[in-house]
């Protein structure tokens, strides 16, 4: 239901939320909760399957992966650690997640440029192509609402790796990688346009898809979809975000 999705998560669902802030994200393999899903049906917890009680499900993303990661991922991690100054890897990389055959490096934003440069320049890594920057907005993940996700491709070694950098809504700044991968220019502009992430150091961070005077950032989860009800033969179809959903 649409009114459920706008309720700030975590207000009345204490037991779903991990309050343990001391957990070591680099090694903790238990899933990370990034939010809460509400909707009708599809209950996996509790007895209520009617949906009228307002079902709540925690959104659990995979936690840190344990070594060995498998495939070429161990080699990438080791080479990257060797390419950085001592303990640079430990401070820069928050955690490594290997899920569905893809490797994600969660990088702290202040270390993004160092990591990016090492990934591009080291002969054994050589991620010479940044295929794009995508944003994701996790409304309920306090302090890490905005995620910028970089998909890197090494044509030399035929490998892919993903960088994920987070920023809080209150301080939506992430350093720009345009100086390292000029092709990320428009992708960062799009992510700024759609999510409001400010890429510091970008040569011309302006809107790219929306008009220059557009207020707000449309892909954020607190931005409404908009739309008008459609009347057909006396019946009314509400706009998509107000239709009954079974999420």
């Amino acid at each position: 239901m649409s009114d459920d999705t706008t309720t700030p998560a975590g207000t009345d669902s204490g037991e779903l939320w991990s309050t343990d802030v001391s957990r070591d994200v680099a090694t903790d393999t238990t899933p990370v909760q990034v939010g809460e899903r509400r909707g009708m049906f599809g209950a996996t917890r509790g007895q209520d399957t009617t949906g009228y009680g307002g079902l709540r499900t925690p959104i659990l993303f995979p936690g840190a992966s344990e070594r060995p990661y498998g495939s070429y991922f161990d080699e990438v991690a080791d080479t990257l650690a060797a390419a950085l100054p001592s303990d640079g890897y430990g401070t820069a990389v928050e955690r490594v997640v290997v899920d569905r055959g893809e490797m994600t490096l969660f990088v702290r934003r202040e270390h993004l440029l160092a990591i990016a440069r090492a990934l591009r320049d080291d002969p054994a890594l050589r991620f010479e192509v940044c295929t794009g920057v995508s944003g994701v907005h996790f409304l309920a993940e306090a302090g890490r609402e905005l995620h910028a996700i970089y998909h890197l491709l090494s044509i030399t070694h035929n490998r892919r790796v993903r960088l994920e950098v987070t920023a809080p809504d209150a301080d939506p700044h992430i350093p720009s990688v345009v100086a390292i991968w000029p092709g990320a220019d428009w992708h960062e502009r799009e992510t700024w346009d759609m999510f409001g992430i400010i890429f510091d150091g970008h040569p011309a961070l302006t809107r790219i898809l929306m008009p220059d005077d557009w207020p707000g950032h449309p892909q954020r989860k607190d931005y409404p979809l908009g739309g008008i009800p459609v009347e057909y033969k006396g019946g009314t179809v509400p706009p998509p975000d107000q239709r009954r959903s079974y999420n």
Partner: peptide
């Protein structure tokens, strides 16, 4: 990106034309 529900949480397309037009 999926949140486990019946709809995509986020769908992003890296369109080749978008990139190549740069």
């Amino acid at each position: 990106v999926s949140d486990g529900g019946t709809r995509p949480y986020r769908a992003h397309f890296r369109d080749p034309s978008f990139n190549n037009l740069q």
